[in-house]
Amino acid sequence: MYAIIETGGKQFKVKVGDVLKIEKIDLEPGNEIMFDRVLLFQGNEGLKIGSPYIEGLKVKAEVIETAKDKKVVVYRPPSKKAIHKLKGHKQWYTKVKIKEIMGG
C-alpha cells in the first residue's frame, strides 16, 4: 500500500514507516501533520487516481526534526575577466515519518 502526495511543490511516493525530507514546515518535533493533497493511492482494492486530488484520503505523519541541509556550492566561472563568483546556500528542510494512510 502506497500513496503519492504533494507538498512544497514536489511529489513524494510514501508508505507507512517512510522518512522524508520535505520543504520546511513550521512545526515542533513530535507534532503531527496531515497531508490531504493525495494524487494517487494503491491499496488492496486497486489503484485510485485523483483529479487532481483524491477526496477523503489523508496521510498522517510525525515531525522528527527541522534543520538545514548540506551546503550547495554555486560557482560561476569568469566569462572574460578573472572575476570568480563563488556562492553557497543551505536550504531548510523538515524530516517527517509517515504514520498511516487514512481513508484508503
Rank of each mutant, 00 (worst) to 15 (best):
F35M: 09
D36S: 11
D36Q: 07
R37D: 15
R37C: 10
R37I: 02
R37A: 14
V38G: 01
V38L: 00
V38P: 00
L39C: 05
L40G: 04
L40M: 13
L40S: 08
L40W: 05
F41H: 12
F41S: 09
Q42M: 14
Q42T: 07
G43V: 00
G43D: 06
G43H: 06
N44Y: 13
N44Q: 15
N44I: 13
E45N: 13
G46E: 11
G46P: 08
L47P: 11
L47V: 14
L47K: 14
L47A: 06
L47N: 08
K48M: 13
K48C: 08
I49W: 12
I49M: 10
I49E: 14
G50W: 11
S51K: 15
S51H: 14
S51F: 08
S51R: 15
P52N: 09
P52R: 09
P52F: 07
P52W: 04
P52A: 04
Y53R: 13
Y53T: 13
Y53D: 10
Y53N: 10
I54S: 01
E55K: 06
G56Q: 04
G56W: 01
G56C: 02
L57Q: 01
L57W: 01
L57H: 00
L57S: 00
L57R: 01
L57G: 03
L57A: 02
L57T: 01
K58D: 05
K58V: 02
V59I: 12
V59Y: 07
V59H: 07
K60E: 09
A61T: 04
A61Q: 06
A61L: 10
E62K: 13
E62P: 04
E62F: 03
V63I: 13
I64Q: 10
I64H: 08
I64T: 08
E65Y: 05
E65I: 03
T66V: 11
T66R: 11
T66N: 15
A67C: 12
A67S: 11
K68S: 11
K68E: 11
K68P: 04
K68G: 07
